[in-house]
Design a protein around this nucleic acid. Structure first.
Lengths: 148, 148
DNA sequence: CTCACTGCAAACCTTTTGCAAACCA
DNA sequence: TGGTTTGCAAAAGGTTTGCAGTGAG
């Protein structure tokens, strides 16, 4: 897997050690389409490393976060992580409430927004939540199965 | 104070009891310009009610939240509360990172946003963060005082 | 007088920290 | 080997819950 290898090499260059566990962690994010909670990460990882402790998960999430490999988002139901977007230019996200997959939105509303002259903008957040095509189809299929 | 009385009456109509503490809590929000953390609420309230316990603060915040008197927002550094906006029509917010005061943004970016046909939008979030005129002035004044 | 509210204590969940053992380079 | 990483245990927030006593209507 390309990305995983790249990341591991970057970690190595940063003076970090490559452990089996970290490799698995990066692969997990590399394969995940949406966001993962620390708990979900712990559960996935624990299947492979039964003796795994929660604090190690947190520590390694922080390592990946500090390296910019993953990004952290605070949802209403808690903190979640996902692989950082490869897309370099500024963009926003559409997030599926079911699978938490993200789609890029290229449009940035800041250019259209009237800001009072005395307000100094530092950052902004624009996020659209809903259901992606696949999840809608799945839900529709499930519903029709129920009716039958 | 108009708003506080209105809210207390609404609570009474909902079968809730009017206690001194709740009146003080509502007044606190009524007088606050920005967001308050549960901890800040506790600290303010404790000056008036030394025997106050934290769980009562949480319980009453939830009561106000359920009634729609206050709204809860999850910031990166934790949960905060503020009086619900009186402004009825859909709008967004500019939030001062210093004093956490909010200014309304009437423009809604959703009309300008290209959404794939198969994505069903449920909700969206558009927030602008920065420094308001007053806080910028205060900071500038403080800086020039330091230089002297 | 009754039911809602409060304080206390304890539980719970998430996240962080100190330390000694295990491990990578 | 030397410094990093890990597991364990414990602590540190933040939030919720059960219970008995207090207080509003």
């Amino acid at each position: 897997m390309r990305t995983t290898e790249d990341i591991m090499q970057r970690m190595s260059r940063n003076g970090l050690r490559i452990t089996e566990q970290r490799k698995t962690l990066v692969k997990l994010f590399d394969g995940a389409s949406g966001y993962l909670t620390p708990k979900e990460v712990y559960e996935h990882m624990q299947r492979v490393y039964p003796g795994l402790s929660f604090d190690t998960v947190y520590r390694n999430l922080r390592v990946l976060l500090d390296m910019g490999v993953v990004e952290q988002i605070v949802f209403e139901d808690g903190v979640k992580f996902k692989l950082s977007c490869e897309e370099q230019h500024h963009h926003h996200h559409m997030i599926c409430l079911q699978c938490e997959k993200t789609l890029p939105i290229r449009f940035c509303p800041m250019s259209e927004t009237d800001v009072p002259g005395d307000f100094e903008v530092v950052k902004h957040k624009f996020e659209v939540f809903g259901y992606c095509g696949e999840c809608k189809e799945a839900a529709a299929a499930a519903a029709s199965r129920e009716v039958q």
